[in-house]
Simulated assay, not measured.
Amino acid sequence: MASPYAQELQLASLAVQRAALITRKLLSAVDKGALDKSDASPVTIADFAAQASIIAAIHHVFPNDEIVGEEDATALRENPVLLERTWELANETHLDNEASEALLHTPQTREELLDLIDLGAKGNCTPTSRTWTLDPVDGTATFIRGEQYAVCLSLVENGHQKIGVLGCPNLRASGFVAETLVDRDGHGQLLAAVAGHGATIQPMGPGALLSSRPLEKIPQITDTSAVHFIDTQAATTQNLEVHGRVAASLGAPWPNPVDLWSAQMRYVAIAVQGGCNAFIKVPLSKEYRSKIWDHAGGMLIAQELGCVISDLEGRPVDCSQGRTLAGCYGMVVAPASVHQRVLEAVRVARGL
Score class of each variant (00 low, 15 high):
residue 49 A to Y: 05
residue 277 N to S: 04
residue 66 E to C: 09
residue 192 A to E: 12
residue 283 P to M: 03
residue 245 R to E: 14
residue 103 L to S: 06
residue 130 R to S: 12
residue 96 D to G: 01
residue 333 V to N: 02
residue 244 G to H: 01
residue 285 S to C: 03
residue 176 F to R: 08
residue 167 G to H: 08
residue 263 A to G: 03
residue 140 T to G: 05
residue 328 C to T: 15
residue 84 E to Y: 06
residue 265 M to L: 15
residue 304 E to F: 10
residue 139 G to C: 00
residue 304 E to P: 11
residue 14 L to K: 00
residue 189 Q to M: 15
residue 318 D to N: 14
residue 188 G to P: 09
residue 183 D to F: 15
residue 323 R to Q: 10
residue 82 L to E: 08
residue 269 A to R: 02
residue 197 H to N: 12
residue 141 A to S: 13
residue 142 T to H: 11
residue 81 V to G: 04
residue 328 C to Y: 00
residue 254 W to I: 09
residue 345 A to L: 07
residue 92 E to M: 09
residue 327 G to S: 06
residue 286 K to Y: 12
residue 37 K to Y: 01
residue 21 L to H: 04
residue 130 R to Y: 01
residue 96 D to S: 05
residue 148 Q to D: 02
residue 2 A to R: 12
residue 155 L to E: 00
residue 351 G to K: 06
residue 323 R to H: 07
residue 349 A to S: 13
residue 40 A to S: 12
residue 32 K to G: 14
residue 53 S to A: 14
residue 246 V to K: 00
residue 180 T to M: 11
residue 243 H to N: 14
residue 351 G to R: 08
residue 330 G to H: 06
residue 329 Y to A: 08
residue 308 V to N: 09
residue 95 L to N: 07
residue 38 S to W: 09
residue 222 T to K: 12
residue 215 L to P: 09
residue 285 S to R: 14
residue 162 K to Y: 07
residue 158 N to M: 08
residue 207 G to A: 02
residue 342 V to H: 03
residue 26 L to A: 13
residue 338 V to E: 02
residue 103 L to T: 05
residue 277 N to L: 02
residue 337 S to T: 10
residue 29 A to P: 01
residue 51 Q to G: 04
residue 290 S to F: 10
residue 62 F to Q: 10
residue 231 D to L: 09
residue 90 A to K: 05
residue 11 L to C: 05
residue 119 L to Y: 13
residue 33 G to F: 06
residue 58 I to E: 01
residue 116 L to K: 00
residue 23 T to N: 07
residue 136 P to M: 02
residue 60 H to E: 11
residue 327 G to P: 04
residue 152 C to T: 15
residue 286 K to A: 14
residue 128 T to P: 00
residue 33 G to T: 06
residue 151 V to G: 03
residue 65 D to M: 11
residue 308 V to S: 12
residue 228 H to A: 08
residue 76 L to Y: 06
residue 236 T to E: 13
residue 185 D to C: 11
residue 130 R to A: 10
residue 44 T to Y: 09
residue 293 W to D: 10
residue 266 R to T: 11
residue 187 H to L: 05
residue 312 L to V: 10
residue 8 E to D: 13
residue 325 L to T: 02
residue 181 L to R: 14
residue 342 V to Q: 01
residue 310 S to H: 03
residue 209 L to K: 04
residue 199 A to K: 08
residue 343 L to R: 05
residue 273 Q to V: 06
residue 76 L to C: 11
residue 284 L to E: 10
residue 75 A to F: 01
residue 318 D to P: 01
residue 161 Q to D: 11
residue 140 T to A: 12
residue 297 G to M: 04
residue 102 A to T: 11
residue 174 S to E: 15
